[in-house]
Design a protein around this nucleic acid. Sequence first.
DNA 1: AACCAATGGTTCAAATAATGAACCAACGCA
DNA 2: TGCGTTGGTTCATTATTTGAACCATTGGTT
Lengths: 259, 259
Amino acid sequence: MGTVTKALSLLGLFTQIRPEIGLSDLTRLSGMNKATTHRLLRELQAQGFVEQVGPERAYRLGPEVLRLAALREATVPILSVSREVLDRLSAATGETAHISLVQGAKLNALSHAYSPRYATRVMMDDTEVLSFHATGSGLAVLAWAEPDFVNAVLAERLHAFTPDTETSAQAIRARLDDIRRDGMAESIGGYEADVHSHAAPVFGPDQRPIGALAVAAPVSRMTETLKQTIRAELAAGARDMTQRIGGLYPPSFPAARAA
Amino acid sequence: MGTVTKALSLLGLFTQIRPEIGLSDLTRLSGMNKATTHRLLRELQAQGFVEQVGPERAYRLGPEVLRLAALREATVPILSVSREVLDRLSAATGETAHISLVQGAKLNALSHAYSPRYATRVMMDDTEVLSFHATGSGLAVLAWAEPDFVNAVLAERLHAFTPDTETSAQAIRARLDDIRRDGMAESIGGYEADVHSHAAPVFGPDQRPIGALAVAAPVSRMTETLKQTIRAELAAGARDMTQRIGGLYPPSFPAARAA
DNA sequence: AACCAATGGTTCAAATAATGAACCAACGCA
DNA sequence: TGCGTTGGTTCATTATTTGAACCATTGGTT
């Protein structure tokens, strides 16, 4: 494994639940030698990617991460636009809204918004790598992804996260056909039991999906009325995001015709 | 130079003016061998820190930068709070508002907001490393920085950016005393001719400045009325930022008594 | 008070990864 | 057609990284 990859993988260990981690814990989590961990952290710290805080001198993500994100936001304002859209979506539906972005062969959660409407809600972990075949977001991306990409995903062993997870590549392809006709993906208990989620793709300038916007609700709260509300708000939110980041819908997308 | 440092320095080459850079240009800018540049970019790309876009396959900052920034924002919401405060500050004053953060021995511009009130405005470049001794922001930070830090800054050769730049360490120390009494730094043409700026420090939980919030206006527009408006709005904005990111004012800070 | 187990941190001989000169294919231009 | 640029690749040589062993400090336990 390359040295740069090792160093950057340390950054990936920070989570919302665990924003500050000590040297020994980072060593444990990473499986590296403590001297190696320390030396890599020194280089990351010198460049501003991590900083040490508190009397225990734990590490956390540093200001350079913010500066680079602000730079990228200046041209592709995904963070700020998604913040707004997520807040609006969770307020309008009363359920958890979240967004994920494609990163190479992975789908990474970026951000989420909770609604205070109910005492229970579908919880999100923003460090989570989402499954393509088992989540609404993943299916929404696959439906408009390059065929090679879809083939690569479906060639992998498809894990059954719950008894309801579809693991047949053929059956998944059929579902992707349905999603393409509808413009939206739906998943009931595919990744987590008792969670009913809807997702719509968000497109980039090249008409390819850069990620997906989704709403997740407990199955027990999913009435026909709520479903229609979610579908309408989600379609509007994903369209809004796509447009505001300079994305373009592929001609085959049904909701683009609806717009 | 460490390999990690080399790789991360490539990320630092991206700017708002130049968000997309090709392999050969990155090679030129970095002074590295093209094979080395390419290999480092491959590792950065695999981890999501850069991505390639367009038919020329130029590089730009990638989604992992956003994801990590979102993670950090979840605990220390500097980006989102500063966005709000900057927008409010530029709207209220009609001038350019900007924020910078301390990163080791540097003061890096993070973000800015322009006002559309006038046809002319003070322009900002968010990749800029600000001078401590020659800018309002720098002076605002120095006034409440650790003595060792101040000594280190003033021990360096102090560059005269304009004929009005103060370069005497002794005179600067006297100004820092004034700033500590007043709670705000003011710089007239210290860094750029014809620019009158005010800056207030933003504090972290350890009562140390993490950066500064500033308003920059052309000298010709600085009436006594505008000055009072800027001072009031800036004090309120910096206080708001400090409080919302969980910061604490040092007991010696005058405006903290005013709050 | 003594002991223990954990922490953050450091050293340097040995091991491993990174380097970069030279090369390739493709493209746009004169 | 030839030239100069681009993005990209190879592998013998060179430079950096590694990690076992070590240190000082701290907090908890007996």
